[in-house]
Design a protein around this nucleic acid. Sequence first.
RNA 1: CGGGGUGUAGCGCAGUCUGGCUAGCGCACCUGGUUUGGGACCAGGGGGUCGAAGGUUCGAAUCCUUUCACCCCGACCA
Length: 501
Amino acid sequence: MAKTGISPTRSEDYPGWYQQIVRSADLAENSPVRGCMVIKPWGYALWENMQRVLDEMFKETGHENAYFPLLIPKSFLEKEAEHVEGFAKECAVVTHHRLEPGPDGGLVPAGKLEEPLIIRPTSETIVGYMFAKWIESYRDLPLKINQWCNVVRWEMRVRLFLRTAEFLWQEGHTAHATKDEALDETRLMLDVYAKFAEEYMAMPVVKGEKTEGERFPGADMTLSIEAMMQDRKALQAGTSHFLGQNFSKAQDIKYQNADGGESYAWTTSWGVSTRLVGALIMTHSDDDGLVLPPRLAPKHVVICPVVRKEEERAKVMEYCESLAKELADVQYDGKRIAVLVDDSDKRGGEKKWYHIKRGVPIRLEVGPRDIENDSLFVGRRDQPKSFGMPRTEFVERVSEILEEMQQGLFDKALKLRVDNTQQVNSFEEFKSFFAEKNAAKQEFHGGFAECYFVDCPEMDAMLVPLKVTPRCTPVDQDVEPGICIFTGKPTQTRGIFAKSY
RNA sequence: CGGGGUGUAGCGCAGUCUGGCUAGCGCACCUGGUUUGGGACCAGGGGGUCGAAGGUUCGAAUCCUUUCACCCCGACCA
């Protein structure tokens, strides 16, 4: 049996496999504080690439970056009723501002704060407070702000990248004069996320609207992109909220319009987080390790010099350096190709596996024999077998190969989703679609079920025992009448249902 | 917060039931050598006081009490 880079494999133990990917690709590890993670250089480089692309997209759509503080007065969170209920129970609270030596030698909190501060779980309240000050007239609108920051949500159960107590994200906050404009913004940012997911992460997504039960606390409408992971579960990868006038009324975000009257602004918020790294892992990685889509890979090509005798070293290294330089002048996706010459003294096989596990798209092995023929031994992360190729041909084609890999990853992920998405027309069929045929591998059953439904408490109650949730009502669907599979009521709405992260 | 489980070297584990030599093994790490187009081999070596505190005992990783942390299953969630 072929030895896999990762153990356990996906089919043996999917959650265990996920953890091993994170560890053996050197992406992150747990910190001494429960629920918090240390993101290691390779993982952070990946996040930086995501940030860079998204940041450009936000700026192209007219947003500006700003920064709001980490600490928020407790009273701010109390202003919007639903918002309170949604976030209060997972807030970390700062109650003191000083430590003093205690009686037993340790330090004890002293200097109790008049008003407790909460560590932001999201920044609607503090941003809204500032928006209220900044917005006076319709001429100040629209106001379109984004911030890159960390937030804290005290989750009960955590998994690296997918759900951590502290996570990195961006949160966009905008205020508009009209409802339609705010709705357009909400949809626009969802499109931005979908484009990023599909074109950069090579991760196909379904764009849709959340049901009432799944909506962001305080929003009138929540849109999301949903992706299918390799275990057929759904992962919410990005959200865009239309907040109506809920927050502007709670926070007094008013403006004077052209005819002198006063109106409340319409606001939106939208965000994606380091969870995207988890999504990337579960979309593309295999039993040998991480697989990175070339457009986001911190390094596109790694060159591994093969040195058998010391006297060959100088010659081989020189050749590798010149090759690296030549490759770095090639453009891929509008940038220079990122090349690494790995001259660490690992042995050949070990070095190869190291880069396979980290998901580097292309490995080149260069030894005296290759130098003589002016050819390269090429290993693609998406193909099991390496092959030889003349150097000039490789340099010419490398950009094309990377693009082919990018597209290949998308196609494969899309096929998985299409193969595991089914129209379901009755509740019986629905139950068997999600039935646990094999208790040990229940996560591999089911997928996305597309059904007619009416959003109501009865449906929610029927879904609970199945551990299935409505993921979204896809946008752009054909409107045709149907029957709700839960209640039998007539409806025109079709939704995607799945087990989810 | 409820149910179950686990804490012994960086990682993975044995030893605990039935207390007893210097706490062991694999991988990783360090040194030397032989190797090198594929996750090497041989030899030598460093590192743990057994999650923590208290107790029983001549003697505790092992028994008792308390406590903390982590994992899995629920409720919650980007």
